[in-house]
Design a binder for these strands. Structure first.
Length: 113
DNA sequence: AGTGTGACTTGGG
DNA sequence: ACCCAAGCCACAC
């Protein structure tokens, strides 16, 4: 087996995927939040990378991930529209600019010790 | 090996 | 609230 191929991914990647899959319906998380929960506070861009690379293969709810401003981060208009559609189907409201009320829909994992 | 890029974030004006 | 600049990190060319 060659390393770095297929499922031989770094712990960070695995964790990110796990976290994204754990986002409940009707809620969203930001890239920075996910990165932080996965152990890398500055890993927002890597979360993006992972989403690009693994979302389809792992069937991740990519549409539940938004940027820190609470808006759709995607540049592509078609995909952006699709994400909005998915979210509205789950009860997440957004305005015409694709902005979501994070105070209302952000998912916060209960890290109670 | 160096440069550019991106579904990011934060801070300042 | 909006726009801009700098910081960050992995990956593509």
């Amino acid at each position: 087996m060659k390393k770095g191929s297929g499922q031989s991914m770094q712990p960070f990647t695995r964790k990110v995927i796990s976290i994204i899959k754990s986002i409940p319906e009707g809620s969203v998380m930001t890239y920075g939040q996910i990165a932080e929960q996965a152990g890398s506070a500055r890993g927002a861009r890597q979360v993006v990378r992972i989403l690009h690379a693994m979302s389809e293969a792992h069937g991740l709810p990519w549409h539940r991930v938004v940027n820190a401003k609470g808006e759709i981060a995607i540049r592509d208009d078609e995909s952006r529209f699709r994400q909005l559609l998915f979210l509205s189907g789950e009860g997440v409201e957004a305005d015409d600019e694709g902005r979501i009320d994070l105070d209302r829909f952000r998912y916060r994992p209960d890290n109670r010790d």
